[in-house]
Every structure is written in C-alpha cells, then in structure tokens.
Write a protein that binds this DNA or RNA. Structure first.
Lengths: 207, 207
DNA sequence: TTAATTATGTACCGATCAGTAGAATTGCAA
DNA sequence: TTGCAATTCTACTGATCGGTACATAATTAA
C-alpha cells in the first residue's frame, strides 16, 4: 500500500500557512461578496497564498466554498441554536428572545460582513451556482427548521407553550423572520431596528 | 440645434425587435439568475438580438439591469401595494392578508422565477455590484417601508388599528417577514407553507 | 437620387475567469 | 547522503467576461 493518509503523513515540504486561518479568511470573503462575487485571484491575495497552494489545500472553488460554509455554520451558525433551549431554567419566551437577538447581533456586527452567509448565498442566481452548493443550502434550511420544530415540541411537553399550536407553522414563522432579518441587515439595518421586530415575533409566539 | 429627441426621431433603420418585450425577457433572466449570474451573451441569446443592438437599445449591463428592475417593480412589485389600502370597505385585517398573500403567490408562482428579484439582487455580493444598483435597491426598501408606514398611520386614523402601536416597528415587522418569504420561496417553499406564516403575521398585527 | 441617420452583423478588444503543467524548493526517511 | 514526497513558484491554458470598431443594410428627409 503506497497510499498514505494525508493527515498522518509527515513526508514532504510543510505548507507555510495555517490551513484553518486561511479557511476562515476565505469564508469571510464569501460572506462579504458571495460565491459568484468572489474570484480565485482575490482569494489567493487575501489568503496570502498562490493558486497551486490553494487548489492543493482546498480542491477547487466549489469545494473551498463548501468548506467555508461548513466553517461558517460551525462558528457563526450553530452556536446560536443552543440559546433556544438553554439555559433550561429560563422561560422559553426569554430563550427565544435571546436566540433571535444573538443572531441579529451577529448579522449587524460592525466587525463582521453584514447579513448572513447562508441567506446571501441561497439568494444568488440558480444556473451559475453548482448544484452541490444549492443542495447543501437546502439541507441547512431543513436542518435548522427541524431543530426549531424539535425545541417547540419539547416546550409543548414542558408546558411552556400550548399543545394546540402547530409547531411546524410556528417554526416556519420564526425561521422566515430570521431570514428576513438577514436581508434587512445586508441592506444596512442596525440592531436597534431589528430589536422591535424580535419582540413582536416573540410576542406572537409566546403570549 | 442638431440634437434630436430619440423618441421623436423617425430617421434611420427601424429596430427589428420590440424593446419592451426584450426588456421583459432581460428582466426575467436577472430575476432567475441575479445580476452577476446573468451574462451579456446569455442576454443576447435570450433576447434574440446581438450585442451592438443590445448596447444601443439599453446602454450597458448596469443600465439594462436598472431598467429591468424598474420594469419589475412596475409590473410585479407596486401592483401588490394597492391591496394594502383597497378596497377601503374591507377590514384592514383582510387587506393585510390579501396584500401578503398576493406577494406570496407571485413569489411561488410556478410560471415565474422563484422568489423576488429585489430580495435576490440585494443579497448579492457587495464589491462586484455597481453602487448605483445597490443604492437603487436601498431606495426600494425605503420607499416600500414608507408606504406601509403611511397606510398603518391612515388605519390608525380610521380606527382599524390602535393608536398606541408604533407604526414604524409594525411596518418593519411586515416588511421583514415579506423579505424572509422571498428567501423561503427562492429555496423552494410553496404557497401552502407560506400561508400559515401570513396568518400568524396578520394575527400579530391586527388582534 | 442623394445625404443623413439609425440598426444590424461580424469580428474583434483587453481583462479576467477557473484551473493547471512543470520546474524548483523544502523536509523527512532510509 | 540519497531518494521520495509534498509544497511553492512562475507561467501558462482555453474559456468567458463586458464592451466596441467597422462595414453593411435599411429607412427617412431633402
């Protein structure tokens, strides 16, 4: 067996850049300018590496975007989710508020690109976007939606929200509002203008 | 004065395509694939005219997009607005419902591109989009927002909604939900899944 | 009929796109 | 020290990008 595991291999010249740092820089570029709006040349300049190094480390543009999207969800997407269910001793109303506020703050953070990478990319044109990316984005929609549904069902069990409500519809309501907030943030909305929207949403969900 | 008005001029060879029909086809392409995702070559093929004719009739890509955006708003944007205020004899609750449903139906219409041209384009990357386009999109946000605010204020006067509510926040709430519906529709949501969201939104606005 | 004017068709421009070939460099193992 | 493996560098590929020069065709006014 000549084939060595890439991770375990100690042979050959070492790459002179940190792969995770480079991935984060790439993610920020995609977040700022979208998939079509980000060129390989701009990536090499921002990451400080040349094309062959980039292709060797990350595959092609599509694969680099997929890795960037994964990085984004792990660092800027999923961490918000736990605020919806924790801390458990907090009333659900407060948790929902903190959850949405946490996302809104990220979307309007002046040190981060405006809006949400997922919302922005999923709004880009159809034909020019690789189907693998489109399908990954659809999976993110479904997963997040299912997560909210699960939490709402759990809260029904705990008696925090009425058993009569349709949790699928309520989850859709929350998710759609969050997506809209992403569009607003991309268009320059600040946290102050999103705060009342969140309060209205929470009030509509938890009486 | 040698300068003749373009509209009045009867000189020279006549163009052998209908400018409005061509503009509508261009608008549909931008609606489907976005600004960056639509190339001049694809435009010439779809419109059935060659590049010099396209440039002569519509200026450059940026100006063609601006005309397309204007066409879109006139035909697929503004017509919804009047449902928010008319017919006056209808309760505001029903008008708000019809208004949002009308937009949702357009966003999910199987004979039209999924979603909303305005939402999709405003989510495209920053650097590669001409500033004139970005600013036009911001104006659309502001104008639509102001329109909803005006209607809400009028409804306060008529006693359809309480005088105590903050109409700016409520207008923002409605607009943000509509933008979110645009993202959902782009990601494949159908009218059936948007309908409950609309009902929840209406219920949150008009008790 | 002629001159002026506008549109069309072909063929092209420089710039940039994503992606790569191949030589030189670096590092570890034997 | 030698040999192999992995990375880096320069330079390049063919394709496509937005946009245009120029000659020809069509239409109207004089």
């Amino acid at each position: 067996m000549e084939v060595a595991l890439k991770l375990g291999s100690k042979l050959g010249r070492k790459r002179n850049f940190d792969k995770d740092e480079a991935l984060e820089k790439a993610m920020f570029l995609f977040w700022e300018n979208g998939y079509l709006g980000t060129s390989i040349t701009e990536l090499t300049q921002t990451l400080g590496i040349n094309k062959p190094s980039l292709y060797s480390a990350f595959g092609n543009k599509e694969q680099l975007f997929m890795s960037s999207l994964d990085f984004y969800m792990r660092k800027y997407g999923h961490p918000h989710l736990k605020k919806l269910s924790h801390p458990e001793e907090l009333p659900f109303k407060e948790r929902l508020y903190d959850f949405m506020t946490s996302i809104a703050e990220s979307m309007t953070d002046s040190t981060l690109p405006k809006g949400c990478l997922f919302v922005k990319t999923s709004c880009e044109g159809s034909e020019m976007i690789p189907v693998q990316i489109t399908s990954a984005l659809h999976n993110i929609v479904d997963d997040n939606n299912q997560f909210v549904i699960n939490v709402l069902e759990a809260e029904q069990e705990r008696g925090e929200i009425p058993k009569e409500i349709n949790v699928i519809e309520y989850a859709n309501f929350i998710d759609t509002m969050l997506m809209g907030m992403g569009v607003q943030a991309k268009n320059g909305a600040n946290i102050q203008s999103l705060q009342p929207i969140i309060q209205l949403t929470v009030a509509a969900i938890v009486k």
